[in-house]
Structure formats: structure tokens, C-alpha cells
Simulated assay, not measured.
Amino acid sequence: MAELPMFPLGMVLLPGGVLPLHVFEPRYRQLVVDCLSDDGEPEFGQALITHGSEAGGGDERALVGTVAQMIQVEALDDDRYALVTVGTRRIRINAWLPDDPYPIADVEDWPDSSPDAPGLDDAVTSSHARVRAALALAAELGDVSAEVVDSDISTDPLVASYHLAALAPIGPADRYRLLTASGPADRLAVLDEVLDDVEAMLKFRLT
């Protein structure tokens, strides 16, 4: 277990996902400065805000998140920062600590269970086809760009399960369900359940 600076947001970063950030709040500008001054890779945790707003504090925060590593940092005027981060690993949040001066949590890594479960390759292929079908419907509605439909995914089933969770045209609550799945097989099963509702809604909007 370790204390980690945290950046709660109204969205979900998944391992392997890319998250650009414009950092302008004073407390999060300080978070960036502190992360860059630490030894090792500059990183912080990202977690979903389950209730409340991103600005000003007073929000309610999820208990599972993802470590975000800064891979690009650009200093802007007025001490702001433009960041590009990538999700590296999943974490369980044991406790949210006082915001001093920014959110901090006691966390531990939470690796996926059964990353080599039998039948994963077939499950990935099936889920990929369903995600592409849902994206095609969403593109027809103008919700996503047509280029997203043909996005590549990893050949590693564990990584692919996260890629599909990130690509699927779903909201933060459903994406959080996928983040908290015990392992890739469970994640793909939950994704199929979510896509049942998503496909029905997209088809209804197209009628």
C-alpha cells in the first residue's frame, strides 16, 4: 500500500488508454509540480467522480482507479500545463485521504485475475465484432468518427479487453463496471451485457 496523488474526473481512464489533460486549477498544478519533482516516472492516480463536480472539491469518488503516467508535459502561460498521460495499471483505493493540497489516496495495485483463461481469444474476437458493430451505428448517428470503427486492438487478450472497453460507445458508469471486472473473461462478459442495451438504443435512435 502507498499514498498516491489523485486526479478525480468525470470519466474513466483504463490501463493502456491515453488521457490528455489541461491542468489549470491551482491544486492540480501543484500536483504536476510535485509529480515531476519525485524520483522515478511522474505518475498519479485517476478515479471516477461518482457524484459532484470536478472543480472545487466536495465530490464523491470511486474506489477503483488507474495509474496515469505523464508521457508529455508542456508548460503553458499562467502556470498551466498541457499533459498527455497513459494508463499503466489498475489500482484499488483503500482510503481517500484529506485533500492537502490536492486529492491523495492510500492505494494498492490490483492486477487482473486469470489473464490466460481458456477461450479468451474467441471471446475477444466476438466482443471486437460487437464493438465494431456498435461503433458503426454510433458513427452513422455522428456520435463518433468513422475512423474509430476500424481501430486496431492488441493481440494480447488481457490488453485487448481493456482496448475494447475503451473503444465501446458507452458512458462512464458502464466503463467503470468494465474497469472493476475481476479479469479479462469477466470484463468481456460484462461488455457483452452492456452492448445489448447500447445496440438497442442506437438502433432506436436510427429509426
Rank of each mutant, 00 (worst) to 15 (best):
K203C: 12
D186S: 13
L48T: 02
S154E: 09
T125M: 15
L167V: 08
L97R: 01
L141Q: 05
R27N: 04
S151H: 09
L19M: 13
D77P: 12
M1W: 07
L21Q: 00
A95T: 12
V32A: 04
D122Y: 11
R175C: 04
Q46T: 15
T125Y: 12
D116K: 11
A95E: 12
F24Q: 03
Q46R: 15
D121Y: 14
R80Q: 13
A47S: 14
A185D: 10
D78E: 13
A68D: 06
S151Q: 10
L202K: 07
E140T: 11
L120N: 05
L83A: 03
L4A: 04
G10N: 08
P8Q: 06
G17S: 14
F204L: 13
V67F: 01
L21Y: 01
P111C: 04
P98T: 00
Q46D: 06
L179M: 04
P115Q: 00
T207Y: 08
E199P: 06
G119T: 06
F7I: 00
D109M: 10
T125P: 07
D38C: 13
A189W: 09
S37G: 14
L76H: 01
M201G: 15
P20G: 00
D38R: 15
A168I: 02
W110V: 13
A47R: 07
P103T: 00
V144I: 08
I170K: 08
E193T: 14
A185G: 11
P26S: 03
E43I: 11
A165P: 04
Q72N: 12
P42I: 13
P42G: 09
L36T: 06
I170R: 09
A200T: 11
G52S: 05
D186R: 11
F204G: 15
I104R: 15
G119Q: 10
A160H: 05
P111Y: 05
D192C: 10
P103Q: 02
V149W: 12
I71N: 15
D100C: 02
D152L: 12
D143W: 14
L13N: 04
A139D: 05
I170N: 06
Y102S: 00
A75Y: 04
R132P: 03
V23G: 07
V124A: 05
E25D: 04
V12A: 05
L137I: 07
V32S: 02
V194N: 03
A129Q: 13
G10K: 13
